[in-house]
């Protein structure tokens, strides 16, 4: 194989190079691809610029209080983002906590344990999950999942934990309606699983079989192979996949709007309704005027910042893991 490619290389270099015309295809191609790359940058810069410009009046009016205040009163034009920021981070965190172990399980099963005839159907199903529009997840979450969740999780769990310290607050539903921050987190988990699972599967597939086979050869169990050989090899890339999923969970709008309960209140219970930055924008943008519109733009800026922070954190983690 190597010899063949070297031979090809040599023969192609032997040929006398053709004189390039004044506008070679290569040049045009280079310009076209440069333009495509620049277009993305310009659009991104434009969006950020427009958001900052739109949000500036709100930042100017409320200053740092815009982030720390939890008041959102359209009638009196008082806006604070704290409830939405907390809701965004909490729901995304729940999604990652639930979604990551499941995704890793799926990927490991598909690459290591799955009988060949089952591989195709399971992998295709997972990828189809990624193609479901988010509004469908929202509708399904509200009309199908939420009633079941209320009946089989919220009611029994609340009756068990009632009166207990800590759990009695975090997992107590005053009104078991099925919607709330935890429901949103679970729906988000289902939405990010296909992303994390299929990327992780690709990564595990790329690990040279010889590593795995040698490990089995010296008598390792499946668990030991996965834990001590495969995961360390794929670790950095898996973190990247998780961060991609987290980014999606932070910005998801429609599905969350349907199932989070849309209340501008901080509550210690995960069963209580809350709101996220994206759901707040989706709810109010249509009918927003004046300072409310500026405040929603400012919320958008904050979501941008949060997502950027997550991405940067991911890069740092990856870089650090590489050094090790």
């Amino acid at each position: 194989m190597v010899a063949l490619s070297q031979k090809l290389l040599v023969t192609s270099m032997d040929k006398p190079s053709r004189r390039s015309p004044p506008f070679s295809f290569d040049q045009v191609f280079r310009l076209a691809s440069l333009a495509s790359a620049l277009l993305v940058l310009t659009v991104l810069a434009g969006i950020i610029g427009a958001m900052i410009y739109g949000g500036l009046p709100a930042f100017r009016q409320f200053g740092l209080g815009f982030i720390t205040s939890s008041v959102w009163d359209v009638q009196r034009d008082q806006y604070g983002a704290w409830v939405a920021i907390v809701g965004t981070l909490t729901s995304a965190l729940i999604a990652v906590v639930i979604g990551v172990p499941l995704s890793l399980g799926i990927a490991i099963f598909l690459t290591q344990l799955c009988p060949p005839w089952l591989k195709r159907p399971v992998a295709t199903t997972i990828e189809l999950l990624a193609a479901v529009p988010s509004i469908i997840y929202g509708m399904w979450g509200l009309f199908v999942f939420a009633p079941l969740f209320a009946k089989f999780v919220q009611v029994p769990v609340s009756s068990i934990v009632e009166g207990l310290p800590v759990f009695g607050t975090i997992l107590y539903a005053r009104t078991p309606s099925g919607v709330g921050v935890l429901t949103a987190g679970i729906i988000l988990a289902i939405m990010i699983i296909p992303f994390i699972a299929s990327i992780t599967r690709d990564i595990l597939d790329q690990i040279p079989p010889v590593l795995r086979e040698s490990a089995y050869g010296i008598g390792c169990t499946t668990w030991e192979v996965v834990r001590h050989v495969l995961l360390p090899q794929a670790g950095v890339s898996i973190i990247g996949a998780i961060m991609l999923g987290l980014g999606r969970a932070l910005g998801e709008t429609m599905a969350v709007t349907f199932v989070i309960g849309n209340a501008n209140r901080l509550s210690p219970s995960l069963f209580d309704p809350g709101s996220t930055i994206a759901s707040r924008i989706a709810n109010e943008f249509n009918e927003a005027i004046g300072l409310q519109l500026n405040a929603l733009m400012a919320l958008g800026c904050i979501l941008f910042l949060v997502t950027f922070a997550v991405l940067i954190l991911a890069r740092l983690l990856v870089a650090r893991a590489r050094v090790k």
Partner: peptide, 20 residues
């Protein structure tokens, strides 16, 4: 809370649209 297209609700849960 006052009157308007969206107000600060002191209690309860919010659904999106009539269907919500």
């Amino acid at each position: 809370p006052g009157a308007g297209a969206s107000v600060q609700w002191p209690i309860g849960q919010g659904g999106k649209g009539n269907e919500g």
